[in-house]
């Protein structure tokens, strides 16, 4: 079937089998490999992307069902500058091998944007086998305070 996806601000047309997941469409058809296939079963969170601003597991989402804009880790930077959450992950060393990082970053962006009360509860679907968890929490805190000071200036 023919579908249209808006990914990171670009409109992309695809002819796919209806069973193709959003993750496979991104990775194998559109060359967008930031979202990772860690389990393909919704168990690890490495494939987390945003659909209409909501974090979703791309491996559990059929591409053909997606109507709203998709944002992946590649679409976070603005004006050639990393997103404050990406900046915070790098500065707080919130990663070791980094395989889970794309998904962690997308969940963290949602956590910061939604001003969630409990970051750890919100992020608990994103596994990190290197257990860089303390630095992930620190990165989200840093991004949150960056956002708060930016909001205060407005």
């Amino acid at each position: 079937m023919d579908i249209t996806l808006e990914v990171n601000g670009e409109t992309r047309h695809l002819s796919i089998d209806p069973r193709v997941t959003l993750l496979d469409a991104l990775r194998e058809r559109l060359g967008i490999t930031g979202p990772k296939k860690g389990c393909d079963r919704g168990q690890c969170g490495a494939c987390t992307v945003h659909v209409d601003g909501r974090p979703v597991l791309a491996c559990l989402t059929l591409a053909a069902t997606v109507r709203e804009p998709v944002r992946t880790v590649e679409g976070l930077a603005a004006d050639g500058r990393p997103h404050p959450v990406q900046q915070a992950f790098a500065e707080q060393d919130a990663l070791q091998c980094g395989f889970c990082t794309s998904g962690q970053v997308m969940s963290a962006v949602a956590a910061v944007e939604q001003e969630v009360a409990d970051v750890r509860e919100f992020m608990s679907g994103n596994l990190c086998r290197c257990a860089a968890y303390p630095n992930i929490v620190a990165a989200v805190e840093q991004a949150r305070s960056t956002k708060e000071s930016a909001d205060a200036r407005v």
């Binding site: 930031g34 979202p35 900046q87 790098a90 980094g98 970053v105």
Partner: peptide
């Protein structure tokens, strides 16, 4: 390699 890993380019 940190920047590449947080931007998804690695």
């Amino acid at each position: 390699d940190g920047t590449l890993k947080v931007t998804g380019e690695f």
